[in-house]
Design a protein around this nucleic acid. Sequence first.
DNA 1: CGACAGATTGGCAGTCGCTGCCAAAGGTGA
DNA 2: TCACCTTTGGCAGCGACTGCCAATCTGTCG
Lengths: 199, 199
Amino acid sequence: MKQGAKDAPTTLWDRTRQLASQEILETALRLFTEQGYDETTIAQIAREAGVSQRTLFRYFGTKEDLLGGDQDRFRQVLTDTISAQPAEAGIWEVLRAGVTAVLALHDSRDQALERFRLLHNTASLRAGWLEKRLRFQEDLLPLIEARMDAAAGGTTPRARAVIATAFACLDAASMTWVANDGKGDIMDLYDECLAAVRG
Amino acid sequence: MKQGAKDAPTTLWDRTRQLASQEILETALRLFTEQGYDETTIAQIAREAGVSQRTLFRYFGTKEDLLGGDQDRFRQVLTDTISAQPAEAGIWEVLRAGVTAVLALHDSRDQALERFRLLHNTASLRAGWLEKRLRFQEDLLPLIEARMDAAAGGTTPRARAVIATAFACLDAASMTWVANDGKGDIMDLYDECLAAVRG
DNA sequence: CGACAGATTGGCAGTCGCTGCCAAAGGTGA
DNA sequence: TCACCTTTGGCAGCGACTGCCAATCTGTCG
């Protein structure tokens, strides 16, 4: 019988898994920042983390996952936050709240900066990242569409455009933030970008 | 001394290359639409096109290039078109002109539809496509930035956001266009999307 | 025509990300 | 302690992609 909700069944296995996962993650991030993403091989990460390649791939399905973190968590927070917004809120406020929530998921400002830096400087990473983001956008579609004025006919393309625009502003903001070495607040840049677009 | 500009030195080599390139391209597009992008291997394309894998990779550096076509041409047309816009034109008109020009590059409506369909339905393709598109956006940055009001301080993030928004609308438009099996005009959808964003 | 120089090609081995399979090692509960 | 189940590592293999080398083909010049 499971007591509580989430912390009870801490078996040795769970703890070991936790440790291994953390060790792999830290090794990967370290090597990535030291010598670059493309220049770091899975074999090297596995070796330095003390596990076999096969095991590494069991923890993290792809090389990108070593940097992207828990993708499902992002999705969860995003959709939850947006669903929780009051019905009277405007679309842009709703999306802004979603963006804020996702940004808050990073452990620290420095870690966020390091990840963004790698992301914006590595073509192969960018590609995967943009693709995953597109999937997030599709997840948000029904939520945003429900908040739009249906009088003007098909809302789907309009909703898609609005969502994509919000993410585009986040992109522009984070790029500038990285270029400025983390100076200032991302959300300020986001607001500035959105204002320029809707100007 | 090269006469004319481009058609004179038609040696046997050039003609052979031209033929091989075309054969490979057609074979690839056929197989992609028949059995899907991921399910088609380079080995199969090479076999059916009558060349070796090695040669195929000499013509097209990556598998994606078999569908993306001449990327440099896109870039060229885009930047040229935008540069050619009158100085008094608004940013959004300028970007709209660029989008129109790029769309006009497709051979036929059917071919465009087929490519967009593959693009939107294949995750691995989408990733590469989005990444290339991001590079286009960076190319456009200086051109757009020069047309923006510098009074409000740093124009870079704002220019980036505006450019990305234009492409985001093109995305939403083309997705809807594909979903509608090519009915209607993409630019109408584009305008609708942009209106929804700037509304 | 014949021969040399340069372009083009094919094949082969090898790298890297990633997967399926199988046997061994380790934790778990009765 | 004894099954039982999870986790692990190793190995072979696939597909995209590259470097290297030898064979072939084209253009040209004497």
